[in-house]
Design a protein around this nucleic acid. Structure first.
Lengths: 210, 210
DNA sequence: TGATATTTGTGTTTATTTGCACAATACACT
DNA sequence: AGTGTATTGTGCAAATAAACACAAATATCA
């Protein structure tokens, strides 16, 4: 294990959830042991890369045998801090927000939507999934009370920056932004983007070359 | 411009839609000219990186002035092949599929949903947005007829691989996969993944280190 | 006009990331 | 026990990506 103070590169952190997802899938299929070679085949990575990635965090495998799946899952969950359940707020209950609220896959991956906000008075206090929609006017108050540190931002593009600012002032430390716009936040706040059109445009670049 | 036969690295192609998105935003705000420095500030990239990235495709700026926004937008649209409209199929009309069908932002970014499929006979032939849901039994036939090359895969996890196989056999060349599973496709087919939990887990890694 | 400010595109350098290859270890089987 | 096969973790090399830094071009303005 590389045990100096250098931070582990982001590109490696990005692959860890992919490894965890695939290992969970293998576990679900009843598998108990795997190897860097098999995992690499399934994910399209080289075996060497998988071994090297894992080696940043410790020694998890056994020579000649490979990796015990349930053990590696537990280790990855520790590393990614998802051996507990993080509370999440969904801000904006449009089509995407609703879809996220109804999605049942978060719990087993370490997350639980715990509050849902909208600014539309026709939606406020109405049910959305197992929630009652809160008024976005109470955003800061509720997020602080509930100590919610992660938000999924699903408001219309033109309001994304303004709502992001409020999330930051409410103490949110990580934002998953579904609005198709880059938002500016202080350095200590993490932002990731989900914008299908950017993925599609990446692919059309290659489709156009054929 | 770097004009040898080396393919342009994927990491650069990934940034081009981000540049395009921000430039469109600036254009919408009435701006006409920008610089690598300003664009970098807004996006969190270094100016040098932006200039180097663009230099792979040609010369778009003017020394002392910067970039004319509308011109650079047009050039990026050409590069990414979104100066035309690509037909897209949505496969699986659950919560996410519905949200995509109702999303109005695709058209101006080069895409148009043109067919929508589900296997649930209670949904088939029912309306979804401006569409009538087609029976997934007719998937191959319709995709070939319509020459649809791009699909957004929004079926339940356990059916994702099987449906992906059918998309490939129907001639689809690019899949945007919303199912939380890695799918295997032939080398000539592009796949990108949208799985919110992987992004969240990446962020909790860092949150846990604070 | 000429002096000063900007800003690009790119050759070079530095840093990061990936891949290679092999000793060390474990297992299976005779 | 011994032989053959599988697999890990890692030092080192190669490949890739990012940053630096500067000549050349443009704009501004006294």
């Amino acid at each position: 294990m590389e045990d100096n103070k250098k931070p582990i590169p982001k590109v490696i952190i990005q692959r860890m959830p992919i490894y965890l997802r695939e290992l969970s899938q293998m576990d679900f299929q009843g598998r108990t042991v795997t190897s860097s070679h098999e995992l690499g085949d399934r994910l399209g990575f080289s075996p060497a890369q998988i071994r090297k990635d894992l080696s940043h965090f410790g020694v998890f495998g056994k020579q000649g045998t490979g990796y015990e799946i349930s053990h590696l899952i537990a280790q990855l969950q520790d590393i990614l801090e998802v051996n507990r359940v993080w509370k999440i707020a969904v801000v904006g209950v449009g089509d995407i927000g609703s879809a996220l609220v109804h999605y049942t896959g978060f719990q087993k991956r370490g997350f639980e939507i715990s509050r849902v906000f909208d600014n539309d008075q026709n939606k406020v206090h109405q049910p959305a999934g197992r929630f009652v929609i809160d008024d976005i006017a109470d955003l800061e108050k509720i997020l602080k009370e509930e100590k919610i540190e992660i938000a999924m931002l699903t408001v219309p593009t033109q309001h994304a920056q303004e709502v992001a600012d409020r999330l930051v002032s409410a103490g949110v430390k990580a934002i998953l932004n579904y609005a198709a716009i880059t938002i500016n936040v202080p350095e200590h706040v993490l932002v990731e983007y989900i914008d299908p059109a950017t993925y599609l445009q990446m692919m059309t670049y290659y489709l156009g070359k054929e």
